[in-house]
């Protein structure tokens, strides 16, 4: 499936653009990765004695794999609500720069902030990665509708996966459970690496991984934030230096 050319009449209707976004979930391997990951989250919720409705609500309203895994495992191991909330919020800090960097791709001069609320909610790693890939092929005034379609498609896939995983849970071995959890770091790493076109992106990714274990030694509870800001700023420095020399 290829998207219609930018000047095609196909893009005249926002509903058509929504439908193209919805259909685009078949154009990425990340949909399969999300399905299996959310199968795992459904199974994890079952094994930790959360209800199916709880698991589905976490997918609908949290919509961030690592945060959901952290929430379920910390609450399941007897952490307090405050401890869980802190662990979740630290993992979610990445959503702030992601939303800041992805929204300008779909904004037009007349776009109001409230029109972007749902797109901001849908923003997570997969959507962030796919927006950078798909949006250049979508006319700017139809991008919000396209992203709504893409996001709704991915959420539906994950809700289905949650339900299947919840009922399969009793049959999942520990090895299979481990394999499902390993999908998150592998797919996050490779999908981000594929999208790294500039040297600065590669530096940010590599340094971000290498600096985390060092930052974790400080045990501040903000390890990811510290390593992320330091690595990201160094990567920006590399970008700036190359611009100046060019």
């Amino acid at each position: 499936m290829a998207l219609p050319p930018l000047d095609s009449p196909q893009w005249q209707s926002p509903w058509r653009a929504f439908a193209w976004g919805l259909r685009s979930i078949t154009q990425t391997i990340l949909t399969v990765v999300l399905f299996v990951t959310y199968l795992g989250i459904g199974a994890l919720a079952h094994d930790t004695h959360f209800s199916l409705l709880w698991a589905l609500c976490s997918t609908l309203f949290v919509w961030a794999g690592p945060a959901q895994i952290i929430l379920i495992t910390t609450l399941g191991s007897g952490a307090t609500i405050i401890q869980s909330a802190i662990a979740v919020t630290v993992s979610a800090i990445r959503l702030f720069p992601m939303v800041v960097s992805v929204l300008p791709l779909m904004r037009t001069p007349t776009t109001k902030r409230r029109e972007l609320i749902f797109a901001a909610h849908l923003t997570a790693v997969t959507l962030w990665v796919e927006c950078h890939r798909f949006l250049p092929q979508v006319p700017r005034e139809r991008r919000i509708a396209f992203v709504h379609g893409l996001g709704c498609g991915l959420v539906s896939v994950c809700l289905t996966a949650n339900t299947v995983g919840y009922f399969l849970a009793a049959n999942l071995t520990q090895t299979l459970g481990a394999a499902i959890l390993l999908l998150t770091p592998l797919s996050f790493l490779f999908s981000t690496a594929r999208n790294s076109r500039e040297v600065a992106d590669v530096v940010a990714l590599t340094l971000g991984i290498l600096l985390y274990p060092l930052a974790a030694k400080m045990n501040s509870g903000l390890d990811i934030l510290v390593s992320g800001v330091v690595a990201g700023t160094i990567a920006y420095g590399v970008h700036w230096w190359r611009e100046v020399r060019a």
Partner: peptide, 15 residues
């Protein structure tokens, strides 16, 4: 964007 990428890298490393 560089900070977003690096924080995501941290989440990968943490898992």
């Amino acid at each position: 964007r560089a900070v977003a990428t690096a924080i995501l890298a941290g989440v990968i490393a943490q898992i």
